[in-house]
């Protein structure tokens, strides 16, 4: 019992970090799912969109906006830079799909996926050319401020403010997204295209445009993930590797399933952090990928999904 009481604050502390990472994986996984639903491919550059978002925010917009707004404007420059990053990601998503997907849209999905793999390699090297090889540090809204609270007198929990911010921000984003998909014309058209592209086209929906918008939206989600992570991570090329974790989240939740993406993300984030603590910090990535392989073998439809995994 004493042991439990002693461990509890540490577990809570790590769980908060795990859930925060989980939210990020969930956002990126949602991007995988939207693109999968719309055009039936896995966009292998999704993780690199996170990196591009991080760089756009930390290396391009934050310095520029901060110099516009002058000192003491951390809050407004964060929101402005976030908005500019989202706009930038719309362009990234639209242009990428025009070059990587659209000319190949009639080809086998595997062909298109190779093409997204090429995009991934391109973006990594583009980042070196555009932003250099030095990882970029940025402070975001909260910098390195830590939030402490007492857990029922058992001990102090110490977490980064940024973790809490990620949880709140993601929750709000998901509510807005759900309203967007159920209320707005664009959102409902996107759902229709995701369910049946041909039928949607024959009901008068401009499907190529909706698909481009879907790519743009997936790209915004990745970009937002990059912005949220930037103050915790350093922004570097290596940020793209988050794509694999998010892909795991997608598989765990059920590829194509919106709720599944989030639940999968939260699970993967928690598994990662807790296994680092209680199994092995060295093998935590391996453990996550064992989960991935286990799901692919035993439950390829994931927790919430239908059986959709055909040929990847």
């Amino acid at each position: 019992m004493d042991f439990l009481a002693e461990q509890l604050p540490i577990v809570v502390q790590q769980l908060i970090a795990g859930l925060a990472y989980g939210c990020i994986y969930g956002l990126v996984a949602l991007g995988y799912n939207f693109i999968w639903n719309a055009v039936g491919i896995v966009n292998l550059a999704q993780g690199d969109f996170v990196m591009v978002g991080g760089y756009l925010y930390a290396a391009s917009f934050v310095p520029v906006v901060a110099s516009w707004l002058g000192p003491g404007s951390a809050g407004s420059s964060f929101w402005t830079a976030l908005l500019l990053t989202a706009v930038g990601m719309v362009l990234v998503g639209m242009v990428s799909q025009r070059i990587v997907y659209y000319p190949l849209r009639a080809s086998h999905p595997r062909t298109i996926m190779i093409s997204t793999m090429a995009l991934s390699i391109f973006l990594k090297n583009f980042a070196i050319v555009a932003w250099g090889t030095y990882p970029v540090a940025t402070s975001g809204l909260f910098g390195q401020k830590w939030f402490r609270f007492d857990l029922f007198g058992l001990g102090t929990v110490t977490v980064l403010y940024q973790y809490v911010f990620i949880l709140v921000f993601t929750a709000i984003l998901l509510v807005v997204q759900s309203a967007f998909f159920s209320r707005t014309r664009l959102g409902r058209s996107m759902r229709a295209v995701a369910q049946d592209q041909l039928a949607a086209s024959l009901m008068g929906i401009n499907t190529p445009l909706i698909i481009a918008i879907t790519f743009a939206y997936a790209s915004i989600l990745a970009g937002v993930a990059g912005v949220l992570l930037a103050p915790i991570f350093l922004v570097s090329q290596a940020m793209g590797s988050i794509g694999l974790k998010a892909y795991t989240a997608s598989i765990v939740g059920g590829f194509g399933n919106v709720i599944g993406a989030l639940v999968g993300g939260l699970l993967v984030g928690s598994i990662e952090v807790l296994s680092a603590s209680y199994v092995s910090s060295v093998y935590k990535d391996a453990i996550v990928f064992v989960v991935l392989i286990a799901f692919l073998l035993l439950r390829p439809q994931g927790l919430f999904g239908k059986k959709v995994i055909g040929s990847l």
């Binding site: 502390q13 970090a17 680092a276 910090s281 060295v282």
Partner: peptide, 16 residues
């Protein structure tokens, strides 16, 4: 002694 991998971002567990 504790280890971490290249690319790791969260070191809470090891530091604790």
């Amino acid at each position: 002694t504790a280890g971490h991998n290249t690319g790791d971002k969260d070191f809470t567990a090891q530091l604790l």
